[in-house]
Design a protein around this nucleic acid. Structure first.
Length: 399
DNA sequence: TCTGGGGTCCTAGGACCC
DNA sequence: TCTGGGGTCCTAGGACCC
């Protein structure tokens, strides 16, 4: 039985959030549309191809996007809906092969080696997947096909929008080397600048940089990564997704805040949100991290590793309070606050806390139970509950 | 134009231990 | 007195991805 020479598929939804919005509101079809923050400090999360033709890009401030594209329709993002549609897309992919490695809400690698008996070519599989996603879910997907993950990912980019592209074995370097170095997975703005300083503009240039020089400029891990990918060497297999390493909640305020009580209430609210999501995922974490971004965009983090993994609002808050004290925020205008819990472990493996904490722990577990039955918003700490007669200002697009 | 939110991984320095 | 070496853990910051 003959093997496919290029058994790896990268399936990538085209402007995924926008297409989900169009599924729910067909009047958006054919128009310049973007999904993004609707507050003062919103940015674009996803732009339709009509909007892209005006230069609208992801991560661009909405104001700039509107300036470039008069008539741009900006839709607020509805993350739970995108999650639903994403699950349907993944179901389709898993109906073709069990070897599906999700790498984000809207893209995955598939190993289709096992399908060689049922299809004459790997292109037929890619086409069948694209059509099934279109028929069953209603949105377009592009497919890249190659012998390695990295090449398959580049191929899907080349296939967009709504297409399919295969890089035949043996032609990898001819495809890869003329591309701009910024196309490389792992080369962002900073690394691009560093590489340009070395006179490196294409991936072909990168492949000929002496390793020692590269290592001195970008560090050893990046250098190894870049050097192998530039030669189209990528032995990584398609495998099950990695376990979650951290869960966080953060928010940018539409107007900077500096009052201590407000800061504490916002952080407490984030602790509570993180706790609800930890409970849902049945995990607890050892490290609590506070993130603060000041009005000048300078960003600091303060973290603390606890011997016992934490998961309940009160436990996270206890640590968060200490972190606020350590952050040196007095009198400074703050535009963003965030709380993250990392070094996650399975909640069932967490040893119960010592005697003094038993009662509070029991109460906290009761809260988790109620949340599980009635939803995350059903129980909230008194301090952050809406207070009659007091109008709360909400953070910009934080959700 | 004025810069989101949710993540992952890497690096470097200091503490601590042997 | 004026100074080791290596390993591991923790913390902070930064780059990157979608």
């Amino acid at each position: 039985m003959e093997q496919f020479a290029e058994p790896i598929l990268h399936v990538d939804m085209d402007s995924f959030f926008v297409e989900v919005e169009r599924l729910d509101d067909p009047s958006l079809i054919g128009k310049p549309v973007a999904v993004g923050g609707t507050g003062r400090r919103g940015v674009i999360a996803s732009a339709s191809y009509e909007a892209r033709s005006f230069g609208v890009r992801s991560a661009m401030p909405v104001g700039e996007a509107r300036r470039r594209c008069p008539g741009l329709i900006v839709v607020g993002s509805a993350h739970s809906r995108y999650g639903e549609v994403s699950r349907s897309v993944f179901e389709v992919m898993r109906s073709f092969t069990p070897i599906v490695e999700g790498i984000s809400i809207d893209e995955a690698f598939l190993d289709v080696s096992g399908l060689r008996r049922h299809y004459t070519s790997v292109e037929d599989i890619g086409t069948a997947i694209r059509h099934t996603i279109r028929d069953q879910v209603g949105i377009p997907a592009s497919v890249g096909i190659a012998s390695t993950k990295f090449m398959a990912k580049l191929a899907s980019k080349h296939a967009k929008p709504d297409g399919l592209f295969r890089v035949p074995t043996g032609t990898e370097l001819a495809f890869l080397h003329p591309l701009e170095v910024a196309e490389m997975w792992g080369v962002g703005e900073a690394t691009e600048r560093t590489l340009h300083d070395l006179g490196v503009r294409t991936i072909g240039d990168l492949a000929s940089v002496p390793f020692g020089l590269l290592e001195r400029r970008v560090g050893s891990a990046s250098a190894r990564h870049l050097a192998s990918l530039a030669r189209a060497e990528d032995p990584r297999p398609v495998e099950g997704g990695t376990p979650t390493r951290s869960i966080s909640s953060e928010g940018t305020f539409s107007v900077d805040i500096d009052d201590r009580d407000r800061i504490e209430r916002e952080v407490l609210r984030m602790c509570d949100q993180v706790a609800a999501r930890l409970a849902k995922a049945h995990v607890a974490g050892h490290t609590v991290t506070l993130k603060v971004r000041f009005s000048d965009f300078a960003t600091i983090t303060r973290s603390s590793r606890r011997k016992e993994a934490v998961s309940h609002t009160a436990e996270i808050w206890e640590t968060a309070k200490e972190l606020i004290d350590r952050a040196g925020i007095a009198g400074r205008a703050i535009r963003l606050l965030g709380i993250s819990v990392g070094d996650l472990v399975d909640a069932s493996a967490v040893r119960q806390l010592s005697f003094g904490h038993e009662r509070r722990n029991a109460a906290a577990e009761a809260v988790d139970e109620v949340r599980e039955r009635f939803g995350p918003g059903s129980v909230i700490p008194a301090r952050i509950a809406p207070q009659p007669g007091i109008e709360r200002t909400h953070p910009g697009d934080a959700s």
